[in-house]
Simulated assay, not measured.
Amino acid sequence: MPMRYTQFPKKQGLYDPQFEHDNCGIGFLAHMKGKQSHKVVQDALHILRNLEHRGGQGDEVNTGDGAGILLQIPHRFFKKTCIESGINLPNQGEYGVGMLFLPQDEEARGACEKELEAIIAEENQELIGWRTVPVDDSMLGNAAKAAMPFIRQLFIKKNDYKMTEVDFERQLYVIRKRAEREIGSKVAEEESFYFTSFSSRTIVYKGMLTTEQVNQFYLDLNDQTFESAIALVHSRFSTNTFPSWERAHPNRYMIHNGEINTIRGNVNWMHAREAKFTSDVFGKDLSKVLPVVDKDGSDSSMFDNTLEFYH
């Protein structure tokens, strides 16, 4: 018979009712020896499904506040699938992958892609190609479908074999920040231009989904060659912002299961100090990545913006 409580249970074992809060569900999984496998992906998705009770839903049980998973770049999987798209990938670590939410409107999407390609060229990096992410939206609720972006991946080759991994990550960051400012500001309010991730290390699959829907929607995640040694999963309970595809977690660097009460003061301090920023690593590119914080993001994404910048 299921337990039924009309008030908090009494303190027992590791449980203490004073720590009761309503917020998101998070999970993390890693192979201790760094061995990549599809089992890590499967186990992480199992954890995510078990976090269903921590995620929010509206009046539709098949429209979630958000759910997703962060994984390592699955080189073996991409090597196989990109050939089908006419993309010849270099060795692992020699390319970056951007996961983008784009406008559903074909003309608007094409304009975004063309301008992004121009920015990549201006930053002296080489675009290898685009891949449309295969999805199945048949299980989504009407609200999730109505807001759903067109989802594509772009692949960028490191233009200098002497460039370190960190330097390449920094270059991808510069490209993304430029694109967000120069392209995102032109996109219609009801459309999307958003990078869930843009990295040579990790990739994020997320959306306005329930925990059960993540690998039903993103077909890539079910392929046996999709492998990772780490995984972060998140089931979102939207407490102080509206649900959206963009505001689902994981963010690019972190997952979070609470609210940051000092967020507005922190953001204001960051903006106030940007005029005095100097950087030996960014050099002349520093101005391209400002402002650091996206003021339209959630408190978690604002923290993620800051963490990414300092990293």
Results as ranks from 00 to 15, higher is better:
Gly258Thr: 07
Ile120Arg: 03
Lys80Arg: 14
Phe77His: 04
Pro103Asn: 12
Ser300Asn: 03
Ala146His: 05
Ser235Thr: 11
Ala144Phe: 04
Leu154Asp: 00
Asp223Ser: 11
Ala275Val: 01
Asp136Ser: 13
Asn305Trp: 02
Tyr161Ala: 07
Phe237Glu: 04
Ile260Glu: 07
Lys295Ser: 07
Lys162Pro: 03
His249Asp: 07
Thr202Met: 03
Thr202His: 12
Asn222Leu: 05
Glu60Phe: 06
Lys157Pro: 08
Ser192Leu: 02
Ile230Tyr: 14
Met208His: 09
His249Gly: 08
Val174Phe: 11
Glu274Leu: 07
Asn142Tyr: 00
Met32Asp: 11
Asp223Val: 13
Pro90Asp: 01
Gln216Cys: 12
Gln42Asn: 03
Met3Leu: 13
Arg201Thr: 00
Gly96Gln: 00
Glu227Phe: 12
Met163Arg: 02
Gln7Ile: 13
Ser228Pro: 06
Asp160Ile: 04
Glu122Ile: 06
Lys186Gly: 11
Leu307Tyr: 09
Lys206Tyr: 09
Ala231Cys: 08
Asp296Trp: 05
Lys11His: 15
Asn91Val: 03
Asn50His: 14
Tyr173Glu: 01
Pro149Cys: 09
Gln153Ala: 07
Lys11Phe: 15
Gly68Glu: 04
Ser199Tyr: 02
His53Tyr: 15
Gln36Asn: 10
Ser138Arg: 14
Gln7Lys: 15
Val61His: 01
Arg252Asp: 00
Leu307Val: 11
Glu94Phe: 08
Tyr310Gln: 10
Thr210Cys: 02
Gly184Tyr: 14
Gly184Gln: 05
Ile128Leu: 10
Ser300Ala: 15
Asp299Asn: 09
Leu221Thr: 10
Ile255Tyr: 06
Ala67Val: 04
Phe193Asp: 08
Val166Phe: 13
